[in-house]
Simulated assay, not measured.
Amino acid sequence: MSRPRLRHLALVVEDAAAAAHFYCETLQMEEFHQDPDGSRFVTDGYINLALIQRALDGDVPVGFNHFGFEVPDVASTAERLTGHGVAEPVLRGGDRPFAEYRATDPEGNWFDLSEHGFLPPDRRS
């Protein structure tokens, strides 16, 4: 891989289980991960789609949430980002098998950075 690749999209949904079922049944995606909060992750084998379960008391609206890039080197990518005036990417917490860092563009849109990609470990190339 010589340049970053868009490999991840995330939507906040009212019913993650129903949304995952829809994408699996209609577009032949495959569910590969479920978070304790009920969020589901599906893939077409190249890009994954996070279906983030909206919390009843949450203030995050339903709809588009963030996207993610697989990058060859987070440190050099972070250097290019900060060189363009945005904040340095921060390490994401949790035990997810993907998305090591969170960054923002100049408009404040969130995106993730990952050196090992967004697919399940057994599917990584």
Rank of each mutant, 00 (worst) to 15 (best):
F41D: 00
M29D: 02
E100R: 15
F67C: 15
H33A: 13
N109I: 10
D35W: 11
N109E: 06
F67R: 03
E115A: 11
N109S: 11
A87I: 08
V13Q: 03
D35Q: 09
L9C: 09
P121D: 12
V71Q: 02
R3V: 10
F67W: 14
G93F: 02
A20M: 00
D73S: 15
L56Q: 06
G68K: 14
A17G: 14
Q28N: 11
V62F: 11
E79N: 09
D37V: 08
V42Q: 03
A20T: 01
E88A: 15
R102L: 15
E107I: 07
A103F: 06
T82Q: 05
Y23P: 05
V90S: 10
D35N: 10
A16W: 10
D15T: 12
A10L: 00
V62L: 12
G83E: 01
P4R: 06
R92P: 01
N65G: 00
R54M: 00
H116A: 11
F118K: 07
L56F: 06
L6T: 08
E70K: 05
R54Y: 00
D35E: 12
D122K: 10
T77M: 13
G117F: 14
A87T: 07
H8F: 13
L81R: 08
G117T: 15
D112M: 15
V13N: 01
V62Y: 12
S76N: 07
G38W: 04
A75H: 06
S39H: 02
D15L: 06
H21V: 11
E70Q: 09
G94L: 06
R124N: 09
H84P: 02
T77V: 12
T26W: 03
E100F: 12
L6H: 07
V42P: 02
R96M: 06
